[in-house]
Nucleic acid binder design. Structure first.
Length: 802
DNA sequence: TTGGGGCTTCAG
DNA sequence: TGAAGCCCCAAC
């Protein structure tokens, strides 16, 4: 029997299965999806069995045997094995990378070189002394002891052997379990125990009072008050027995709970739910775009749809952007489905993630909630996949394999013949466009679930504020609003839009942002050269001293931090209690959750933060939302800038007035006429969608075109540019004339880690040759360019063009 | 990616 | 002549 194995080596010529002989005694247990230890060249590595066959094309002399089977059960199902193949091909990644992302990080192998003594009698005395009674030592320890030269000699003489040890990063957690005999045995043991052994008598009596078959050793010690030595004495006498039992790590119980009861649905919610249930009953793959305004109760639709598939004995995956994986959200799912839910979020340790993964793998839970990678949850009978806030760019992994969770979800749904729900108040243009073309089924929720009115939105022109002499960060309207809420003991959320910090130049008098003469995109400020550059066409110009439009000298780099905002806020309302939430204050584990919890408890009046506060907050006392600088994200060198701004403004506005109290939103901007800001006033998505689609069509950007970016980097500027040229011309030659190839241009971050970066942009509507051509380019690169120090990467459908 | 073999270079 | 450094190649 032959096993085809993908080995744990990420390299171009190795990105294919290798054949290994299966020893006869393992033939009955060998199957695809198992991890094995195999010899590979002179070393030993972990590999994944992807197929079993009876014969190999290779000379039998070349085939080595599998050394060890690591798992008892396959860790990857046939479905996930097939998915990894598809994903590797689609994203142009190594298959091993595609396999590894599907498993928890704790299962990734760690290699350690160890030295094993073969002929101890031939060792020097000093070396033997160092070893003590150890038979093997890690090379690391030997290096620390400066013994590497000796080891080398011994190894050449065959006195010691160097070997690779493969270790699991995280092991299953085990506890010491004490097995307690029945009362009769305990009583007879008590009689036999000498009364001098007071503590033993005490323990036996305690055990008699607390009858149980088995108990954790630590629990016995804690509750009975005896020490470990007493326990050991009884173990030695074989009165009690012990064993190591595998347990799951205890997760923090959610602090908030949902009532657990399904809520009454509105008509709109009900018809959306029915459509999903129908698709589910018909065992049909169908992708639904659930477009519901903020507060329209999308989550309730998810919950009831999940309930429907669970009743049919199937499983569900819910993906949420990491940031909205707040206790509020998870508590709601746990409240509804209790122990059937596994939550996978970044706050868990790798061991905890591993435990959650095993709970899914063993079929102990039916619902998995998590960020991007939860889309690979090892369910075998999926009935529903949900992506909440589907427009979020965090669903795209920006390192190899560069997959999009949406595509993976649809692939899995297709495999299991089940529906996918993409939910958002502000869908990505891609998804909405597909919904209008009936690729996806559009479901719309236009009313808020609790009948509240949408908050009233006011856009404040900061240029006017400046003219009237207000140089502070807060407009008169916002400052008044804040004071008012403080008096009424209501809560305020202030969003500081920090994206694209200091990267563009803006005139404080007329709001002009310096743009590229060739492209409809703002120029990016480059400190190193004191110039402004366009990352799309390569245009470059010096930083102007005065505004090119109004000749004002109030022209400067735009951007301001949360810390400064907090100081200014203090000057404005010293009595207010402010919680600041940004990368600085949320870097420690659980900080994010704690700050939100405090805010929810009313321990602060104002929540000031960056993007991370825009989502998922659902607190009834928030009645004012202020956006301090709406335009910061508008002038990024990114064709999605307007879309992202509109999404952010809509999301954050949705935080206000979610309960009884009416909400109000104040958006401060230097560019009130911009359609992304103008339209966020009414929070109407469709008009924005139409305008933005028009613009995208004119400029030839997604979703009208697909985009692939090929990036070239090299330590030497000239070589980077040279290879970028070569690569670009290769693509031009090979791809059809329908495709638009732009570049090479300097990347937005033109030097990163001392490497110069250039890129080439491929835009296409239909290009069947794309993947094969990219594969060819990759082969070129790997077989010759890479040797010259070039690094090339391919990113299909990037979230942003850097 | 990694380890080994082979080749060159340099000092002794 | 041996050690060290570098390049190249195969890996089942």
């Amino acid at each position: 029997m032959i096993a085809e194995v993908i080995v744990d080596v990420a390299a171009y010529p190795i990105d294919r299965p290798f054949d290994y002989a299966v020893p006869a005694e393992w033939e009955s247990v060998m199957e695809p999806g198992l991890r094995v230890k195999v010899p590979f060249g002179p070393r030993k590595v972990v590999g994944y069995v992807t197929a079993i066959k009876m014969h190999s094309e290779l000379d039998s002399g070349k085939i080595k045997p599998v050394l060890e089977i690591i798992d008892l059960e396959p860790v990857l199902s046939t479905e996930l094995l097939a998915l990894s193949k598809w994903m590797a091909a689609e994203t142009i990644a190594y298959e091993i990378d595609a396999l590894q992302v599907m498993l928890p990080a704790a299962m990734r192998a760690k290699y350690e070189k160890i030295m094993r003594v073969v002929k101890p009698e031939l060792l020097d005395d000093s070396f033997r002394e160092f070893l003590g009674n150890r038979e093997q030592v890690s090379l690391k320890a030997l290096q620390d002891a400066h013994l590497l030269n000796e080891v080398k000699k011994y190894s050449e003489q065959g006195i010691v052997q160097i070997d690779t040890a493969i270790q699991q990063k995280t092991k299953m957690k085990k506890v010491r379990m004490i097995h307690i005999p029945d009362t009769a045995h305990l009583e007879s043991a008590l009689e036999e125990t000498h009364s001098n052994a007071k503590k033993q008598v005490e323990l036996l009596q305690w055990l008699l009072l607390h009858p149980s078959k088995s108990m954790e050793a630590s629990e016995i010690m804690n509750k009975s008050g005896v020490k470990a030595n007493v326990l050991k004495a009884l173990l030695d006498k074989q009165v009690i027995e012990q064993s190591q039992v595998e347990v799951y790590r205890e997760l923090d119980a959610p602090k908030m709970r949902d009532s657990g009861k399904p809520e009454q649905l509105t008509d709109e919610q009900q018809s959306a739910l029915s459509a999903i249930e129908q698709a589910s009953d018909k065992k049909k793959q169908e992708t639904f775009l659930l477009h519901g305004i903020t507060g329209s109760g999308k989550t309730e639709v998810y919950l009831q749809a999940i309930d429907h598939v669970l009743k049919k004995g199937k499983e569900a995956i819910v993906l949420v952007p990491e940031i909205s994986l707040t206790p509020q959200m998870t508590a709601r799912f746990k409240g509804r489905f209790g122990e059937l839910v596994a939550v996978l979020h970044s706050g868990l340790s790798s061991g905890e993630k591993y435990d959650e993964w095993r709970r899914i793998h063993r079929g102990e839970v039916k619902v998995a909630i998590g960020a991007r990678s939860a889309v690979f949850a090892p369910f075998t009978n999926l009935g529903l996949l949900i992506l909440d806030e589907e427009h979020e760019s965090t669903y795209k992994q920006e390192e190899s394999p560069r997959y999009h969770a949406r595509d993976v979800a649809i692939w899995r749904a297709d495999y299991h013949r089940c529906p996918v729900i993409l939910g958002s108040a502000t869908p990505s243009l891609e998804s909405y466009a597909r919904a209008t073309k009936d690729v996806y089924t559009l479901l719309t929720l236009t009313k808020r679930a609790k009948q509240q009115a949408l908050p009233e939105v006011q856009v404040v022109d900061m240029r006017e504020e400046l003219k009237t002499g207000n140089r502070s960060m807060f407009s008169v309207a916002l400052a008044d609003g804040i004071r008012q809420r403080l008096e009424r003991k209501e809560q305020i959320v202030l969003l500081l839009n920090k994206r694209g910090f200091s990267s563009f130049v803006l005139c404080r008098d007329c709001g002009t942002v310096v743009e590229c003469p060739n492209c409809d995109i703002s120029l990016t400020y480059h400190r190193s050269s004191e110039s402004l550059k366009c990352h799309y066409c390569g245009h470059e110009q010096p930083v102007p001293i005065e505004c090119p439009e109004c000749a004002s000298e109030h022209i400067r780099f735009f951007g301001t931090g949360t810390q400064k905002a907090q100081e200014e806020l203090y000057k404005l309302v010293p009595e207010a209690r402010v919680i600041r939430m940004d990368v600085d204050t949320t870097s420690t584990k659980g900080a994010h959750e704690r700050l939100l919890h405090d805010f929810g408890e009313g321990k602060a009046d104002i929540l000031l933060g960056t993007q991370m506060i825009a989502k998922g907050l659902d607190f009834p006392r928030i009645t004012l939302v202020g956006v301090l600088a709406a335009d910061t994200s508008l002038h990024l060198a990114d064709f999605r800038a307007a879309e992202k701004t509109f999404q952010l403004l809509t999301q954050v506005s949705g935080r206000a007035g979610r309960d009884q109290l009416p909400g109000e939103v104040v958006i401060q901007t230097y560019d009130p006429e911009h359609y992304a800001i103008e339209l966020s006033k009414t929070q109407e998505y469709v008009p924005f969608y139409e305008l933005e689609m028009d613009r995208r069509r004119q400029l030839g950007y997604p979703p009208y075109y697909f985009v692939t970016v090929v990036q070239f980097s090299h330590e030497d500027v000239l070589k980077a540019a040279d290879y970028a040229h070569k690569g670009t011309s290769f693509l031009m030659e090979q791809l059809s004339s329908e495709s638009v190839i732009i570049g090479p241009t300097a990347a937005a971050i033109s030097r990163l880690n001392n490497r110069y970066r250039y890129q080439c942009l491929v835009k296409y509507k239909q290009e069947p040759a794309l993947v094969p051509v990219l594969q060819k380019l990759l082969k070129h690169y790997k077989t010759s360019w890479a040797k010259d120090g070039l690094v090339m990467s391919i990113n299909r459908e990037p979230t942003a063009i850097f």
